[in-house]
Design a binder for these strands. Structure first.
Lengths: 290, 290
DNA sequence: AGTCCTTACGTAACTCGTAACCATC
DNA sequence: GATGGTTACGAGTTACGTAAGGACT
């Protein structure tokens, strides 16, 4: 189970093709074929079906492990090598809804402290922020989600369960101002199973809400919060959002959620290496969790 | 970062010697030396000091990652290969204090259901049970610890944070019957910082209590609960224990703990592969968490 | 016929063991 | 001088690329 083999296995699983994998990883088809054969021989069980290329049961199992292993391997390398290199940069990753005024203020504070800090901010979906901080590509990650009050977020796998709480704010259902629901003081989410919902996997993913049965009428694949709120305002469907986000809106109205008790929570993830007290990442995380 | 290299690195770190590592892993000294050199070249930084052999800063970092990576690699292999093999065996690991009458009853129930089930029960410290279930060497693991009411246990690294709650019972300070404290209705742990404590890392490790400042007067390195209670009864020191354990004792008295609020909690860990509904491990875990 | 994976085979790279070397106690 | 890690070198193994082969569309 050489990491090399795992990497090509994962790539084959993703591309569904030996030749595409060969091209992407700068091998020949033949090499890919041999690597997969070696892996299957090592584990004593077929991992892929050929023609068409697909995962066997064992392959699906391995895929889950392999993805995580490769991330952690990279994380280990980053942790060890970065311990040697001096700081002086700050790479911050955020999920779209993790951005808020307090975060902006903290970031401004850090940049005022160390004027010439090379700062990079990336907005992406939950998975990319989680793996980014795990591998050390990011120094800090801010992720958000909806959960019961003061419950930690359930993060996808390489995510560190020791994430730090940054902000909790009420979660509401966003509706257009004219919408019948806007007159209700509060709703139960389960009662809205028949409503149209907007699923925006990168912003407010329906499937991560601790509620079943909400079906999406419209999918939005971007990461722009304004597009999502615009879609809601235009009546394409409802979305669960943090209350502060729509507090000043003239086109959206918040409806409190009676059941389940739900808050929007932002948590901070740290790259394993950042520990030095003078590290900008350390100081920023102190500001954010204060 | 070949797993092979990581394994010898970990072994060198553990043994503190290249030659001992070579012997244990069936290599020559020379091979070990070359492997370490290859790893250091790959990561671009020295990992070990020689003469005497010890870890550098980077080495300590790598060691933490390497241990986990190796466990997860083994876990991946076990998960994939075991999916192929039929069940019919049940390997259960327990920390000493995780054993209790309900556990015994559930185990008896399973063995009554499937009479010819090859069953193996292992009692060991927390780390071994956690890594055992992670690697798939164990099908189920029962681990225990002291925590705030209804808070999950904080398990060491390869441990799955989704462990299931099995039993919670009050935590008490165990004292000999004649002891002055035995007359007190309750105590605050912090007030007992000057008392003698028994540290039994495999049974009731002081350092895992969510309280600082308790110093050990005596260390017990075994895993026998009866030895630990015997030591307490003989006046060698105090220990935090689950109340049911000393409920019927004539030589030990329980003293309730006022602050911090503390319970003894048993959680269930499952090997990644066990999912089939007819699997004995699945049925036992259903019994335990019912 | 074309696409795509597999197999055969030769070469290049790697890894390990032997043995000589060097540093420390 | 004994112990223990390093370096040099050769042999066995592994892993890749080229090229031919075979299966499915």
């Amino acid at each position: 189970m050489d990491p090399h083999l795992l990497r090509t296995f994962v790539t084959v699983a993703e591309t569904g093709s030996f030749s595409a994998t060969a091209e992407r990883l700068r091998y020949t088809q033949s090499a890919v074929s041999q690597q997969i054969a070696a892996l299957e021989a090592d584990l004593g069980t077929p991992l892929l079906t050929r023609r068409p290329v697909g995962l066997t049961g064992a392959g699906e199992r391995l895929l889950r492990h392999a993805r995580i292993l490769l991330v952690r391997l990279e994380a280990a390398r980053a942790d060890v090598t970065r311990a040697t290199a001096p700081p002086g940069r700050l790479a911050l990753g955020l999920t779209p809804l993790a951005w808020s005024a307090p975060v902006a203020a903290a970031l401004a504070g850090i940049r005022a402290e160390s004027v010439r800090l090379r700062t990079r901010v990336m907005v992406a979906g939950l998975d990319r922020v989680v793996t980014g901080t795990a591998t050390g590509a990011l120094d800090l990650g801010l992720v958000d989600g909806f959960t019961a009050p003061s419950d930690p977020l359930r993060l996808p796998e390489p995510g560190d369960p020791r994430a730090l709480r940054v902000i909790e704010s009420p979660a509401v259902v966003a509706v257009p101002v004219g919408h019948p629901l806007a007159r209700r003081a509060s709703v139960e989410l389960a009662d809205l199973a028949d409503a149209y919902w907007i699923d925006a996997p990168l912003v407010s993913p329906l499937h991560r809400l601790p509620v079943d049965g909400l079906r999406a009428g419209l999918h939005y694949d971007g990461a722009e919060v304004t597009v999502l709120t615009g879609l809601v305002a235009a009546g394409h469907g409802l979305a669960v959002l943090p209350a502060p986000l729509i507090a000043g809106s003239t086109v959206l109205a918040p409806v409190a959620i009676a059941v389940p008790r739900l808050v929007h929570r932002v948590e901070l993830l740290r790259a394993p290496a950042t520990a030095a007290p003078d590290d900008p990442a350390t100081r920023l995380s102190a500001l954010l969790t204060a």
